[in-house]
Design a protein around this nucleic acid. Structure first.
Lengths: 111, 111
DNA sequence: GTAACAGGTTACCTATTGGTAACTGAGAAA
DNA sequence: TTTCTCAGTTACCAATAGGTAACCTGTTAC
């Protein structure tokens, strides 16, 4: 009988644990997009056009909940919302850099 | 109007391109499991018990199709099947290492 | 004669993901 | 007066992911 890990606390494998935080289809791309600078919601959306705004909202909420990004809302008209990586989010930079490098060498360079 | 990238050829972002190959919920874990050595199907399954064998089969097929692993079948009774990383699969090692390191430092070490 | 072995496949079902379209808010521009 | 702005929210629907259980192969051990 297979016993499932009920939540992240129980996972012993570092890669599995990590994937529970950023394993979504979109999260690495969003983090990659925020890697160098603070960005507004609309900016992120424009940079990842294949991602619907509804899903982007959901993913950003989860990233905020998990302590990887900070959401700052300015009470202006029209509204402005900015997203920035936290220290934990920034600590993912080496991972994202390796992913970028691999993608460059093995996908982008091959066409 | 949003135009979707119909397939991997059209993607310009290296991270997006990479995620189309290994972006599944399980693929990084499977590759991580194969990182150091050739393993039999049952071994992989035992090491990732929360993953059903049906899904493992599917994921391995996709990884083989995408040129990341090699499947070797021995016509013995009972059958034996071994999976090994290809050169392309091995080239992911730095990414997997960074993921492991981050998971160790930021998830495993915090309990 | 039937159960176990390894590595699946298949049928069937549910859960999760993700899409579109319509709507919200206050102010500013036409 | 209507429309536009930005950053969502909501309702609803479709597609995908993933689960369980039963079955397959041919040989060997009980």
């Amino acid at each position: 009988m297979v016993t499932k890990a009920a939540n992240i606390q129980e996972v012993k494998c570092p890669v599995t644990g990590m994937l529970q935080l950023i394993g979504g289809k979109w999260k690495p791309i969003i983090l990659y997009c925020l890697r160098s600078e603070t960005r507004r919601f609309g900016e992120i959306s424009a940079r990842i056009p294949i991602l619907s705004r509804k899903v982007l909202t959901e993913q950003l909420k989860e990233l905020e909940r998990d302590g990887l990004v900070i959401r700052e809302q300015f009470n202006e008209i029209p509204p402005r919302v900015e997203y920035t990586l936290t220290e934990l989010g920034k600590s993912l930079t080496p991972v994202l850099n390796e992913m970028e490098k691999w993608g460059m060498e093995n996908i982008i360079a091959k066409r």
